[in-house]
Design a protein around this nucleic acid. Structure first.
Length: 581
RNA sequence: GCCGAUGUGGCGCAAUUGGUAGCGCAAUUGACUUGUAAUUAAUAGGUUGAGAGUUCGAAUCUCUCCGUCGGCUCCA
């Protein structure tokens, strides 16, 4: 996916397109007042106050038409620089622009851009003329709170994209189509992976096929973590309110927690695994020699998310974090974080998911701990990135109140970015829970603790994988690995059954399609269900004691002996070879 | 939670200005016995998300609630 913010040429033209949008809206809705119209990662938007009017779907077409008309008329875009005083005078009837102007300091030179009958306060730069803005599309619209605050008035936000060439616009639109085809909600239904019932909004059900995929993914997770020296635990789903008071969740996170009363005592369902993890650490004494302790948990958490935020597997109310808490001595920190980054790198590579890392640093106001500790922690995180060969983008002030973090953004096969992994340093919980270890000099010390996930949420990660692979999973993950289609049930079913039995005994997930349908029909069905391998068993195979297969995505039929075929697919499973469509 | 859209048999869709629900796939039963992307016939299946209202008459109009989708906010 094209990042409009990072491409200067697109950045400018999209910004200009936002102005063009505003001008068109002003023509059609003279009462319109404008807030801001920035370029975002995917195009641009403009937030508009239409008074009592709201935008509807058909309005977008109308606005687009007006934009095209203005563009054709082709007026120049003229920059003008004025003082704050002049700006205040010029925009005196526009409360939104006044709000912006008042925030600027008195000496700033304020620039305005005028195109035809429309002037907007703007830093620029812009393209020379509205004539240059030709290849654009308004994509979506919605309400958006003024300044993002739900206590403020809701403005109308219109989104769009703009390109320099028709090809780029068409490519973009094609990509959108492709994304629609890969929608995990659609594929999840077609491939019988999961469902969501109206009786449990945001609480997904896993169907037998989806469960296989999920189990494979989780087994893989356990195996890889064991190799990295992790131990595994499971903490309870429901715990006493006192614990959540101690962890601080009752105070800060109660609105998102499901609670219940048992025998007159309040309990809460865990929205995070950490407090339970803390209790496990405290369950025994720890020597400095035991550290680092890497304690993993595939923990099912529940969070009461806003109803409007739910979205398939991407945003749910219960999900499994592939969590782990690492407790270590200060001198182990850098090595441990480098090790972790390399580990995450190895995992993402297996899924062919390239990624970028971002470092979020100390918030300006709300934070705990010493600035010195923060600075040190931040530099260790940044350094660890460098040493492991990555550059990291820095998001100043974006860290949690309890510590800085590294976020991992993976890029899927359509170029879309997803935040999955995160490494968070926690300076809060070890204090609150009074975690200690006995150091070499016999004194109690406070361990350094970090939380980390790689998938983020198993549910969401599967959603991403479904779209990444367009439902055609790599063999090791595929719910069904081989589909057997006998040519004629009367003559070839026995042999087909024998092959099925052999494959099953060799731990291959196999299905036999013995329905009384034409070969072509069943073959088509097998392709529609994205079966990695389809075996065609007819007289030739029975006579020669062979199998013939077609691989998903290929139209070639290849004949092998059973052992050759088994060897081949076992190798593919072992290597986790990926075929990305 | 807020703004907008939307909700029709398992799935995908259709029903001119309100006139009393159709189609394809799937399912079931039968015929066909098939070598590389849909053989064929018949049958069954819905009171149109839920509730209320307007009307002689509501899938269609109004209201309330619920779900879903696109955003806002938030975040894994």
């Amino acid at each position: 996916m094209i990042n409009f913010k990072e491409r200067e040429d697109l950045n400018t033209i999209n910004h200009s397109c936002a102005h063009l949008l505003a001008q068109a809206v002003k023509h059609l809705y003279p009462q319109a007042k404008f807030w801001v119209g920035p370029v975002v990662e995917e195009g641009f938007y403009y937030d508009i106050d239409l008074g009592d009017d709201v935008i509807h779907e058909l309005d977008l077409e109308k606005i687009e038409k007006e934009m095209k008309k203005i563009s054709k008329d082709g007026s120049r875009i003229i920059r003008e620089e004025i003082t704050k005083e002049e700006a205040l005078e010029r925009f005196k009837n526009d409360p939104y622009k006044l709000d912006l102007i008042n925030k600027m300091d008195d000496t700033t030179v304020i620039s305005c851009y005028t195109q035809g009958d429309f002037t907007d306060l703007c830093r620029g730069p812009h393209v020379e003329s509205v004539k240059n803005i030709k290849y654009f599309k308004l994509t979506k619209f919605s309400g958006a709170y003024w300044k993002g605050d739900k206590n403020n008035k809701m403005l109308q936000r219109i989104y769009g994209v703009c390109f320099n060439t028709e090809e780029e616009l068409n490519d973009y639109l094609k990509m959108q189509e492709e994304a629609k085809k890969r929608d995990h909600k659609k594929l999840g239904k077609e491939l019988d992976l999961f469902m969501i019932s109206e009786y449990g909004p945001g609480f997904p059900f896993w169907l037998p096929k989806g469960m296989i995929l999920r189990n494979e993914l989780e087994n893989f997770w356990y195996k890889e973590h064991a190799k990295e020296g992790y131990v595994f635990v499971k903490t309870p789903t429901m715990l006493n309110r006192d614990l959540w008071e101690l962890s601080g969740h009752w105070k800060n996170y109660k609105d998102n927690m499901y609670t219940s009363t048992i025998d007159d005592v309040e309990f809460a369902i865990k929205p995070m695994n950490c407090p339970g993890g803390m209790l496990i650490y405290k369950n025994s004494l720890h020597s400095y020699k035991d550290l680092p302790i890497r304690c993993g948990e595939l923990g099912l958490v529940h969070r009461h998310e806003a109803s409007g935020a739910l979205n398939g597997l991407f945003r749910v109310r219960c999900f499994t974090q592939d969590d782990a808490h690492i407790f270590m001595r200060e001198d182990q920190m850098e090595e441990e974080i480098i090790r972790l980054i390399n580990f995450i790198d190895r995992i993402y590579k297996i899924f062919k998911l390239p990624y970028t890392i971002e470092l979020s640093t100390r918030p300006i106001e709300k934070y705990i701990g010493e600035i010195e500790t923060w600075n040190k922690a931040e530099s260790i995180l940044e350094n660890a990135c460098k040493i492991s060969g990555h550059t990291c983008k820095i998001n100043p002030g974006d860290g949690a109140f309890y510590g800085p973090k590294l976020d991992f953004h993976v890029t899927d096969s359509l170029g879309r970015e997803w935040q999955c992994g995160t490494i968070q340093l926690d300076m809060n919980l070890p204090e609150r829970f009074d975690l200690t270890y006995i150091d070499s000099d016999g004194t109690k010390k406070r361990p350094i603790m970090l939380h980390r996930v790689i998938f983020g949420s198993v549910e969401r990660f599967i959603g991403i994988l479904i779209e990444h692979f367009a439902g055609a999973f790599p063999l090791w993950l595929s719910p069904v690995q081989v589909c057997i289609v006998p040519v004629n049930n009367d003559y070839h079913l026995e042999y087909a059954n024998k092959i099925k039995e052999k494959l099953t005994n060799d731990n291959i997930r196999v299905e036999l399609d013995d329905r009384e349908e034409k070969l072509g029909y069943r073959l088509r069905e097998s392709v529609m269900k994205k079966m990695p391998y389809t075996l065609i068993i007819g007289q030739k195979e029975v006579d020669d004691n062979t199998i013939s297969y077609r691989k998903y995505g290929s139209e070639e039929t290849i004949t092998l002996t059973y052992d050759e075929f088994l060897n081949m697919i076992n190798k593919e499973i072992e290597n986790k070879d990926l075929l990305i469509q």
